Computed example of a mutant assay.
Amino acid sequence: MQIIIYTNAQQVAESAALWVKELIKKKPAPVLGLATGNTPISLYKQLVEQHKSNSLSFKNVTTFNLDEYHHIDSTNPQSYRSFMNKNLFNHVDIDVNNTFLPSCAAGENPRVQGLAYEEKIKQQGGIDLQILGIGANGHIGFNEPTSSLSSRTRIKTLTQQTISDNSRLFKPDEKQPTMAMTMGIATIMDARYVLLMATGANKANAVKEMITGGVSAMCPASALQMHENAIILLDKAAASELSDQSYYQWADNENRKLIEDYGYFHNY
Rank of each mutant, 00 (worst) to 15 (best):
Q130F: 00
Q130L: 08
Y264P: 01
I127N: 06
S167M: 09
P102Y: 11
A198N: 08
V31L: 04
P28G: 02
A251H: 13
L195Y: 05
Y262W: 13
E68K: 07
F100T: 01
G200F: 09
S150M: 08
L158S: 03
M181Y: 07
K120A: 10
E108A: 12
D73G: 03
E119Y: 04
G107M: 07
F170V: 11
I185Q: 00
D261G: 05
A238G: 05
I5C: 01
N8K: 05
N255P: 00
L66Y: 07
A221T: 11
I140D: 01
Q249Y: 14
A16V: 10
E108F: 07
A116H: 08
L132G: 03
D128V: 10
I259Q: 10
N202E: 11
I24T: 06
A206H: 09
P172R: 11
I232L: 09
Y247L: 12
D95W: 01
Q2D: 13
H91M: 06
E228F: 09
V61F: 08
G138W: 07
L18N: 14
F142A: 06
Y80M: 11
E209M: 12
K52A: 03
E144G: 02
D252A: 15
A198D: 04
T99H: 04
S150A: 15
T153M: 01
K236A: 14
C219N: 15
T187N: 15
K257S: 06
L56R: 11
R81N: 09
T36D: 03
E14L: 13
H139M: 08
A201D: 14
A9N: 08
N109G: 04
S74F: 10
